[in-house]
Computed example of a mutant assay.
Amino acid sequence: MGSFLEAVGDGVVLVRVRGNLDGWAGSAELAEALTTVADRRGRRTVVDLSSVDFADSSGLHALLHGLRKHDSAGVPLVVAGPLSVQVRRLFEVTGTLGAFRFVNDVAAAITE
């Protein structure tokens, strides 16, 4: 998994995630990145999951951790897709679809 932070203007930070998001790769890095961004107290954080092929409960835990940090900081966190079938299924099976704000693509999440 790779992720990186990118300031995209007007207080919006984009966190791009690529590859797998699971207990073996990426989950700890994503949780750390989301904590760092929340602490900056920007206007919005967009997590781009459009290039994630697979995610498990560790990846979901990292996202939920990041969501809690953002809620505490008063910074909206938006998840951008499109999501792969496997990633969308993870949110559906765990009943966490309603916990996140989902947007169809990064451009829409940044400009809304």
Rank of each mutant, 00 (worst) to 15 (best):
G66R: 04
G66K: 03
G66I: 09
G66H: 04
G66F: 08
G66S: 12
L67P: 10
L67G: 09
L67C: 08
L67I: 05
L67H: 07
R68L: 05
R68M: 05
K69T: 13
K69Y: 09
K69G: 11
K69M: 14
H70D: 06
H70N: 13
D71W: 03
D71E: 15
D71K: 15
S72M: 09
A73N: 11
A73L: 09
A73T: 06
A73Y: 10
V75W: 10
V75I: 02
V75Q: 12
V75G: 13
P76V: 00
P76F: 01
L77W: 04
L77H: 09
L77C: 11
V78M: 08
V78N: 04
V78Y: 01
V78P: 07
V78H: 06
V79G: 01
V79T: 04
A80E: 06
G81T: 12
P82C: 14
P82E: 14
P82L: 00
L83C: 13
L83G: 13
S84E: 08
S84G: 12
S84C: 03
S84A: 13
S84H: 06
V85T: 14
V85R: 15
V85K: 15
V85W: 12
V85M: 11
Q86V: 12
Q86P: 01
V87Q: 03
V87N: 00
V87M: 00
V87T: 02
V87A: 08
V87K: 04
R88C: 02
R89C: 05
R89A: 12
R89E: 13
R89N: 13
L90M: 14
L90A: 05
L90Y: 08
F91T: 06
F91L: 09
E92T: 12
E92P: 02
E92Y: 04
E92Q: 11
E92C: 00
V93C: 01
V93W: 04
V93I: 14
T94A: 11
T94W: 09
T94M: 10
G95C: 02
G95H: 07
G95P: 10
G95K: 06
T96N: 05
T96D: 00
T96W: 02
T96S: 14
L97T: 15
L97P: 01
G98S: 05
A99L: 13
A99H: 09
A99Q: 05
A99E: 15
F100E: 07
F100A: 09
F100P: 10
F100R: 08
F100K: 07
R101G: 05
R101V: 14
R101N: 07
R101Y: 01
R101P: 03
R101A: 08
F102P: 00
F102E: 11
V103D: 08
